[in-house]
Amino acid sequence: MSFVDYADTIKDGDTAIVFLGHESMFPVKVQHGSKTQTKYGVIRHSSDLIGKRTQILYSTDISLITMMLELKPGSIVCESGTGSGSLSHAIIRTVAPTGHLYTVEFHQQRAEKAKEEFQEHKVEHLVTVKNQDVCKNGFGVSNVADAVFLDIPSPWEAIGHAKSALKIEGGRICSFSPCIEQVQRTCLAMEEHGFTEINTLEILLRVYNVRTISLQIPDLGKAAEDNSSTGFDSSNQSNQGSLYGILQQGTAQFKSGVPLKEMVGHTGYLTFATKSLF
């Protein structure tokens, strides 16, 4: 089964994702005779998850990149570096069946690994991998791309190459950089090359755990004989249309969306720009 289609049943040689518990999932290459039956039922191949396997938190950025680069079926995209291929897979899924990805990776080992994976996932017809230095040699294509994505240490050195890879009538570019100094240089280079709509963004994901929380109602004692006007005690609270579903034995129970104690505070800055015709 290809990474760009759904199938109803798991086939020999497929890569499937097995979920076990809340945050645990892993890909399994299905072998004849093996089972991926868990106690929750059979988990079938869901290819969108496989793309994320190396950098699961990156998907928040991928979402924004895909939309802000206006990727869709048929788009021609240039990318460097290929890296772990997590974005490459996402791009391929989006531009299939009629688009194409040209991905350039500087590191030889990684370029070969990516090529192998694209074959294994049966998407090699949608992607061309090149092992070269994008800052020196560019993408190896001219005036074909609708969009260019850069995730390299010196993106400002590749802006000229990116421009010439984009279609004559224009297109979109995105550069991902962890450090603000890279962004500063990249924005300058984009301006020098006549890009417009230069816009730097940052997106962070805040995940909430849904929990049932019990808070104790404090014991403020008895007001004795006199029940004053301000008296608030746990016994009459339950009659007042409280927010809480369950209120028992001095405890208020409610559902809460609790932020995780720690979250990813930074992945990188995303700088988008447009190449205009003029």
Partner: peptide, 16 residues
């Protein structure tokens, strides 16, 4: 259903 996840995103724009 599995893998239920409740989230929101923060978006920050920069002047560079």
């Amino acid at each position: 259903v599995i893998n239920l996840k409740l989230s929101e995103t923060w978006l920050r724009n920069y002047q560079v």
